[in-house]
Design a protein around this nucleic acid. Structure first.
Lengths: 336, 336
DNA sequence: GTGAAAGCGCTAACAC
DNA sequence: GTGTTAGCGCTTTCAC
């Protein structure tokens, strides 16, 4: 049966009190006497009354909705982060409105329109880069923006990432100590700060050990393209003896291709390392040496930063980079 | 800089027209003269005006928000479905508000409160069972509910699933034809219709071939528990020669355990089949024979059913079950 | 086709 | 502490 939602006026009428009394009972921080509260709650429960968040938002100017723009849900890192973020916000009375951005990001402007329409209190951009147009618009609309797993040089943006430069360096050091001489890299999408930082750190690490990149291909964070990249690099008279793949998701594609198509053994013939430490990396079939992105911590920092920028609109955006440990497993030859 | 959002009143003032004129220009289906529309649009764009969806919702009673309750994001089937559902709804002017249900489902009642608060136009329950209390409450609140990948005997619920009974039967027939004599099952959570239907179909298929289940354990749709289930079943003097695992996600856990812990070869020593056909099932390391849940079709049916129940509140809820094909790969011995 | 006015359900001053 | 009142920004009659 379809029936109109019960309003505070109806509750007030039945309880013999004013409408504002009802409002106060359901407004956190407002005060009503215990007996008044009890009486109203009783009637409200009987009627199944719940305050209309939308009407409340109209007045307070706060929707308690956080917009989250995501794209690469295929990469397990993101659903995992989304789940954690959603639960953490839920615990604080916020909810997540999902905006899927097509991977090509062509529709991002339209998506932003929709976001503004919904009066979200803040915006999390996960796996998406920000154009300067978007900057202006969010700024103009007064919506705090936080980049998750991406970073922008523009100081107007808060961001939470792992320390990708340090992570890249750790991987290079580890591969060098493992005695590798021909170290390659399969890159993600080069427009992403995540990619640039990891590669920069990796190259720095190689340089510190007196080495440089042996070869390089691009996989664009995409599974199929990463397979192609693997073919390109390893169908060669002089293939690499180690490869750093820009994230675990791509690394799985590379490992599958190396083993099943090219007949290479990991790590006997070639070492593979990734980045993220998604759950699959620990599966025995992959046993992937990688750098962990501490998603629990990243989400926690995200939530704190988000709520701070909502409560305190003048606070400075902070760029947080969290150190992630090297997780040594069996996919890369270890130092003796 | 933080500034107030531009309102229709401000646009009207600057354009020298009434506020209702502005409203009409931005309300789909309302009529305004082309020149009036042009003038207003120009001013609105210059000011960055966008109508406030929340205020609109207050009047129309429609929020254009669909609540989605989801739990097992670890199983790739769900993020994939969520992505598709979100995109399909976005294309129709709706958006997804995510409610994470803790896996134990103890907090589902509180979650429902929050859902009602947000005046969602409809509710999709993915991977979550409905108690009869919840039934009443959604019904009373006039919120259409659709179960995704779950089914309830209660006719008040629309649902979209694959034909799990037929799928289970196909797997049984395939294993029998493959010459297996000792066929086991590792079950998911037994409270789920998905589990019950798959197992029922599977048992029917066995019976039709004159066989019955050789052994059985429970993995509750959980990765770790599924490993335990595999150990339980295969650490035996007389282990099964084939096992149907209730979904792909669990099947990967089982395959990993069988190969790396118990030293069994797949399919030479034991055949493994799953259910869902998530992308990982096609990876060479698993090459899993499974039944495909056609998520594109399931999402499409979901969207159609959802929008129908919103536009037409008196329409009868429908229970849709979509046939899914058997995807034959290499993880199970094939018929000669 | 356009403007004036009412009101969606609620919160937040403001008096008492 | 409680009731009264004035809006939040918008859509939708209703006259013209």
């Amino acid at each position: 049966m379809v029936q109109d939602r019960v309003t505070s006026i109806e509750v007030a009428r039945r309880a013999g009190v004013s409408q504002s009394a009802v409002s106060r009972v359901f407004t956190p921080g407002a005060s009503a006497s215990p007996k008044m509260a009890a009486k109203i709650r009783k009637v409200a429960d009987a009627l199944g009354y719940r305050p209309n968040v939308l009407a409340r938002s109209l007045i307070t100017g706060k929707s308690r909705i956080i917009g989250v723009v995501v794209a690469y849900l295929e990469n397990q890192f993101y659903p995992d982060a989304l789940e954690k973020l959603s639960m953490a916000l839920q615990a604080r009375g916020y909810h997540v409105l999902v905006f899927m951005a097509a991977q090509d990001a062509g529709n991002i402007d339209q998506v932003l329109d929709e976001i503004v329409d919904y009066q979200v209190d803040a915006l999390v951009m996960a796996s998406v880069a920000m154009s300067s147009t978007l900057v202006e618009r969010c700024d103009a609309a007064g919506i705090p923006v936080l980049l998750f797993n991406r970073r922008q040089d523009d100081a107007r943006f808060a961001s939470v990432t792992s320390d990708n430069v340090a992570g890249g360096r750790k991987l290079a050091e580890f591969l060098i100590k493992g005695g590798h001489r021909k170290i390659a890299h399969i890159a993600g999408w080069e427009g992403a700060s995540t990619q640039r930082d990891r590669e920069q750190g990796f190259r720095e690490g190689l340089a510190a050990g007196g080495m440089k990149l042996f070869s390089r291909a691009v996989g664009n964070f995409d599974f199929e393209q990463s397979k192609d990249a693997a073919r390109e690099l390893f169908n060669s008279f002089d293939p690499p003896d180690a490869v750093f793949v820009a994230n675990d998701h791509m690394a799985f594609a590379v490992m599958e291709t190396l083993r099943s198509e090219l007949g290479l053994r990991i790590p006997q013939d070639v070492s593979v390392v990734g980045y993220d430490d998604v759950p699959i990396a620990a599966w025995p079939s992959f046993d992937l040496t990688t750098v962990r992105q501490p998603s629990d911590l990243m989400v926690e920092k995200t939530v704190v930063s988000l709520l701070d920028s909502i409560d305190n609109p003048l606070s400075e955006p902070r760029q947080v980079a969290i150190d992630g440990p090297l997780i040594i497993r069996g996919s890369a030859r270890k130092p003796q």
